[in-house]
Amino acid sequence: MKASRRPDGLVIRDGAMRIRGQWSVAWMMTPVAIIFTLLFILPSLNYFVLSFWRVAAFRVVPDFSFANYARALGQHLPVLLYTFKLALLTAVTTTVLGFLLAYVIRFRAGRLAPFLLLVTLLTLFGGYLMKVYAWKTILGNEGVINTALLGLGLIDQPITSLFYSPGAVVVTLVHFLLPFAVLPIFSSLRGVEEAEIESARDLGASGWRVVSDILVPRCQTGILAAFSLCFLAAVGDYVTPAIVGGTISMFGRIIESQFGQAFNAPLGAALSFVMLFASALVLITAGLLLRLWRPR
């Protein structure tokens, strides 16, 4: 065990200092661990156990069975796949747009960069429901777009496909989630110096080669964080499909109905964990695919 001598002459062993530092970190992390356990782990374990029970005469009966999971994977599997398709489309679109906006703020905006970043942050305080209802006003049969087109004489009847459609759900979610994609990607791009990009261009690299060989490998963490946030928020959302999706059935609405109208909490818990495990597989796959990205 190594020892070091302090200016006052006392001898302190490095091993003792290291152990004391580890105990200090452990004590600081204890409140966080307790809060995380009480608010997340224990409720999750409770619902995991509940997912194996059943409902009889509108009462939850403790009974270990895989019937809820069988029903979730059998009866509701098409809805799960459809939900994942919309969530993937939303996450990919938002991540790409977030990357472009983050690139503009980091390398192209110049003196306007702080202002654009501030605007991006301010959009987080706009309110989720306000944005959803704003798009309802824009895309509705009597909304801004249809009113403008009718006024210009370009159409004779409102375009009903704009509202209560998968496109309306995706557009609304992209608008809401875009700041959550911009911020982590911008944070990663801050580690890339402009001199690196200029050097690559001086060597003849095209814009795509700069993005592919420099920017994407250097900000993989930010891209994965942006994709994960957008995908998880989109796959579990049920408010947006209910307001702008109309009759579109998504997995979040089914889960909400089981806890509310159907009074079938065990099935709702099973549906939640099916979506959780499937989402984890998607994110793991996305992380592996992103790690395979190599400069050409």
Rank of each mutant, 00 (worst) to 15 (best):
Val169Gly: 01
Leu283Lys: 00
Val216Lys: 07
Trp208Met: 12
Leu42Glu: 09
Gly167His: 06
Arg5Lys: 15
Ala91Ser: 10
Glu196Tyr: 14
Arg201Ala: 13
Leu178Ser: 00
Phe251Asp: 06
Leu139Val: 06
Lys85Leu: 14
Ile197Asp: 13
Phe251Asn: 00
Ala72Asn: 05
Ile35Glu: 04
Leu203Thr: 07
Leu10His: 14
Leu215Pro: 05
Leu149Tyr: 04
Pro295Phe: 00
Ala205His: 05
Pro43His: 07
Val55Ala: 09
Leu139Arg: 01
Trp27Leu: 15
Leu283Phe: 00
Arg13Glu: 09
Glu193Phe: 04
Pro179Arg: 03
Leu81Pro: 03
Thr147Gln: 11
Leu271Arg: 04
Pro7His: 10
Ile284Leu: 13
Ala102Val: 06
Pro7Ser: 10
Gly153His: 07
Val211Phe: 14
Leu97Thr: 07
Thr147Cys: 04
Leu124Trp: 08
Leu38Glu: 00
Ser212Gln: 14
Asp237Thr: 03
Phe36Tyr: 15
Met17Tyr: 12
Leu203Cys: 13
Val25Asn: 00
Leu288Val: 13
Glu198Leu: 14
Ile41Pro: 08
Gly260Cys: 02
Gly127Cys: 05
Met29Ala: 15
Ala67Gln: 13
Val192Gln: 02
Ile159Thr: 05
Val79Ala: 06
Gln220Trp: 02
Ala225Ile: 11
Phe227Ala: 09
Leu10Glu: 13
Leu122Ala: 12
Val79Asp: 08
Asn46Asp: 11
Leu152Gln: 08
Phe84His: 08
Arg209Met: 14
Leu88Gln: 04
Lys2Arg: 15
Asn146Val: 02
Gly191His: 08
Ala87Phe: 01
Leu45Gln: 04
Ala168Tyr: 03
Leu292Ile: 08
Asn146Pro: 06
Ala200Asp: 02
Tyr133Cys: 01
Val282Pro: 02
Asn146Arg: 06
Thr94Ile: 09
Ile255Phe: 06
Gly21Leu: 11
Gly151Pro: 08
Met130Cys: 09
Asp14Val: 15
Glu194Leu: 13
Phe180Gln: 07
Gly126His: 09
Met250Phe: 11
Ala200Arg: 03
Ile197Arg: 01
Asp213Tyr: 04
Glu194Tyr: 10
Pro158Asn: 02
Glu256Ser: 13
Gln261Phe: 15
Ala26Lys: 01
Leu154Ala: 12
Gly9Ala: 05
Gly167Asn: 12
Ser199Met: 11
Leu73Met: 12
Cys230His: 00
Thr147Ser: 15
Gly260Arg: 15
Pro43Thr: 06
Pro158His: 03
Val210Pro: 01
Val169Leu: 11
Ile138Gly: 06
Trp135Tyr: 14
Pro7Thr: 10
Thr90Cys: 11
Val119Gln: 10
Ile12Gln: 14
Ala67Arg: 14
His76Leu: 04
Phe251Lys: 08
Cys230Trp: 01
Tyr103Cys: 10
Ala225His: 00
Val49Thr: 09
Ala134Val: 07
Gly246Pro: 07
Gly74Trp: 03
Thr37Asn: 06
Thr120Phe: 05
Phe231Leu: 04
Arg190Asn: 12
Leu271Tyr: 02
Arg5Thr: 15
Arg20Glu: 07
Leu77Gly: 01
Val25Cys: 08
Ala226Asn: 02
Leu45Ala: 11
Pro62Cys: 07
Ser161Trp: 14
Ala242Ser: 12
Ser206His: 05
Gly245Asn: 02
Ser199Asn: 12
Ala280Phe: 10
Leu45Tyr: 03
Leu112Arg: 13
Leu88His: 04
Ser44Met: 13
Leu88Met: 10
